[in-house]
Amino acid sequence: MQMQSKMKALVTYGAHDYRYEEVDRPTAGEGEMIIKVEGCGICAGDLKAYHGGSVFWGDEGSPPYLEVPAIGGHEFTGRIVEMGSGTERKETYGTADSSFKVGDRVAVEQITPCGACRYCEEGRYHLCVPHNVYGFKYYLNGGFAEYAKLTKESLVYKIPEDMPLEQALLIEPYACSLHAVGRAAPGTDDIVVISGAGCLGLGMITAARKRNPKCLVALDLNEERLEKAREFGCDVTINPLRENLKEKMMDMTDGYGCDVYIEATGHPSSVKQGLDIICKGGRFIEFSLFLEPVTCDWSVIGDGKELDMYGVSLSHRCFPETIEGLYTGELKSEGVVSHKFALEDYEAAFEQSAKGNGSIKVVFTFE
């Protein structure tokens, strides 16, 4: 049966300029695959691009990262419907050997490594210098469409046939969460604070719970999300608007502060509160993408507390463990996907995702 030559897609033309259109369906060249998209999550990065964040659209000091027209979305899964020659290949960067066939259900990492830069050669492909991520380049269209092309550079993973879509659409964000927890390296004597209990924060909570820290604390302004954080394994949850965070943290830690602080809100106040409640010699992990630059008192990092500061980017080598953890239930996921929208209802989907109240992860589905 011949496949359709056109497809529906949400195309990015500029900040606030997204259009639901009919476009040409991609075809597979050498080493490429076409998947029929099952669904795609809306990331905080997608929202910040939609609302005009300078990190995507540039400013006086930096060029735009987003190259348009582009089809957004990097949290997607689907089923292979077309394969170019040379697609039967060995996976790269330490994943298992794998061959693919039409009909396989797959997930794909958000970045397509060049394989030639210093970082790719060192195996740190997530830091690849071109840093091409699905959905932000006109030549690397993402999952806000009925079909998507997986390029020959893509890192592709088979996923179980019977994995619920609600789990499958958490593979990419949970893999990022797992990487963040790996960077934090919490030990059994550590008091760990995760600031933000959205999708990514909940992924961090369930991943951190596996490491059995002395005390696992979640911060959020949303009581429903704090309830989910407790369900996922937090010992303590705190709403900083309703409780004195520093006072409670100092009471819990004999006046020292937490050992590990993971910032997962993308709000400047979360950075400042983290520097305030972390102990001397603690580990501060910055995960979020901010709409604009953030300022803080850097003397706290050095002379004040001698902190270890860790950044987190993407999901280095975390897809296989994440797929297994979600499938077995070791990584909790029930209720995280809270809203499903058809692609044509993208404005309502973005609005729901942005306001947060009553929702955690908002996704597009093509069921």
Rank of each mutant, 00 (worst) to 15 (best):
C128I: 13
F100H: 00
I111P: 01
P130S: 06
K101M: 11
F136V: 12
K152C: 04
D162T: 11
V192I: 12
A180Q: 07
Y139T: 14
V106A: 02
G78N: 10
P113L: 13
I191H: 06
Q110F: 07
T95G: 13
A184Y: 02
G103M: 02
G86F: 07
Y138K: 15
S98W: 00
D104R: 07
E153M: 10
G143L: 06
Y93V: 02
L200P: 01
S195K: 02
A185G: 01
I111D: 04
I194F: 04
L165D: 08
A145Q: 12
E161M: 08
S177P: 10
D162Q: 09
P113S: 07
T77S: 12
T95I: 04
Y125W: 06
Q110N: 12
C199K: 03
S177W: 05
M163I: 14
A107L: 08
G198N: 05
A107I: 12
H131Y: 13
S98E: 15
D189A: 08
I194T: 04
K90N: 11
C176L: 10
A148Q: 11
Y157N: 08
G84P: 10
R183C: 10
L155M: 10
T112D: 03
Y93N: 11
G123M: 09
D97N: 12
G86R: 12
V108F: 08
V133Y: 04
S195T: 01
A175N: 04
E153I: 03
K137W: 14
A197T: 09
L155P: 06
T206Q: 06
V108C: 15
C114F: 08
S98Y: 03
E109N: 03
L170E: 04
K152E: 14
P160H: 11
Y174M: 12
V193R: 04
Y125K: 06
H131C: 12
G143N: 08
P160M: 06
E91S: 14
A180C: 12
C199V: 15
G203R: 08
E122I: 00
D104F: 05
Y93D: 00
H126G: 00
G84K: 00
I205G: 01
C114H: 03
S98A: 15
G84Y: 03
A96R: 15
Q167F: 09
R183L: 14
A185C: 14
G86H: 03
P130E: 07
T92N: 10
C117N: 05
C120T: 06
E121R: 15
F100W: 06
V133S: 09
S85G: 02
G135R: 11
L202H: 03
K101N: 13
N141A: 09
P164M: 10
P113R: 12
